[in-house]
Design a protein around this nucleic acid. Structure first.
Lengths: 157, 157
DNA sequence: TTCGTTGCAAATATTTTGCAAGTTC
DNA sequence: GAACTTGCAAAATATTTGCAACGAA
C-alpha cells in the first residue's frame, strides 16, 4: 500500500475526511522523512508549494495525525513540538532513540532497538499495554568531547 | 551532607549566590520528592508559605537548578515543564522511567533500571558520554484496560 | 561596594478556539 | 444536505525579558 492510499484509509477508518490540506501536510512530511519538522516548518514548506493554508489548520492536522498514529510527535525541549511521519510498512514506532548533546544541541539517531526485553517485563509486571516508547540519552557527543578545552563549566553570560 | 548544605555548595561552586528565594524553591521541591511539580505548582506552594516571590523568579530558579543539576526537568507533554529534585546522595538521575497512559493521562513510575547494557553499548558505539536518560512508554494502563468497553477508538466530539 | 538577583509588568512564543464560510461524502 | 473542516482573528497559556530596586558576598 502506498502512502497516499494509507492516508486515505487511516483517515477513513477513524471517521475523518480526506481534504486537500491533510493530503498536503502528509505529503510534506513524507518528503521529509527522518526529519523532525515543527509546525512552523511544515507551514513554511507548504507556503512554498503555493498553498495558503492557515497555520491553525496545520496545528489541527498534525494533532490529528498524531492521534491516529500517522506521525510521531517528538519533544526535543526546544519550545515546540516536532513531527515525523510513520510509514505504513515500517516499525519506526519502536525506534525513537536519540542522543541529545547538551553542548551543541545536536540530535543523533540511534538505530537498534534493544528495548524488547524491557518492554516485555513492563507489560507483564504493570499490566500496561505499550503502544510506543521514547528513549533519550542526554550527554556530550563525540564532536564536543574532542574540543573539550575551551570552556569550563561555569556559567556563560 | 544535608540538602541545604548541598544547595549552598552547588550554587557556590557554580558562581551563584544563595538567596532566600532559591532556598525556598529548593525546600518546596524537597518537601515534594517524587512529585513532578510544575512551575505554577511550585509558585502556589510557595505562596502558601507566605512568600510573595514573583513567578518569574521561580521560572528563573528552576531553570538555573536544572542547569546545575539540582533538579530534573520532566516533560509529560501536558503543556508545561515539571521538576523533580535530585538528592545529593541518590542516583535518581538514572531512574526516569515512566508509563504514560494515553487514555487517562496517569503517570506510573517504573522502578528498575535495566538500561545499563544499552548505555554501555551507546557510549562505546557512538563515543557519546551519557549524562542522563529518559525512558517513556506510552500505552494503556491497567485501569483503562479493565474498563475498555464504553468507547471505541472513534473520535470524541 | 560590586555585581548578581528579584519583582513587576510588558513582551514573546506557541498553541487553541469561536465562528462563518467552504468541502467532503 | 448534513456534518466535518478550514481560515481568520482573537484568546489562552507558558515562558522570557527589561529595568530599577534590592541583597549577598
Amino acid at each position: 500500500m502506498n502512502e497516499s492510499d494509507y492516508l486515505l484509509k487511516v483517515l477513513g477508518d477513524n471517521g475523518y475526511k480526506t481534504t486537500s490540506q491533510r493530503t498536503l501536510v502528509y505529503e510534506v512530511l513524507s518528503e521529509n522523512k527522518n526529519q523532525h519538522l515543527s509546525t512552523e516548518e511544515v507551514y513554511e514548506l507548504i507556503k512554498k508549494k503555493n498553498s495558503n493554508m492557515g497555520i491553525a489548520t496545520i496545528y489541527r492536522t498534525l494533532q490529528l495525525f498524531e492521534e491516529i498514529g500517522l506521525v510521531y510527535k517528538h519533544n526535543f525541549d526546544d519550545g515546540c513540538s516536532r513531527y515525523e511521519i510513520l510509514s505504513p510498512n515500517s516499525n519506526e514506532v519502536h525506534q525513537h532513540h536519540h542522543l541529545l548533546c547538551k553542548k551543541c544541541g545536536r540530535i543523533i539517531e540511534v538505530k537498534e532497538d534493544l528495548m524488547n526485553s524491557l518492554e516485555e517485563m513492563i507489560e507483564k509486571q504493570y499490566n500496561f499495554e505499550i503502544l510506543n516508547h521514547v528513549v533519550k540519552f542526554t550527554g556530550i557527543c563525540d564532536l564536543c568531547r574532542n574540543k573539550e578545552n575551551e570552556d569550563g563549566n561555569r556559567k556563560e553570560t
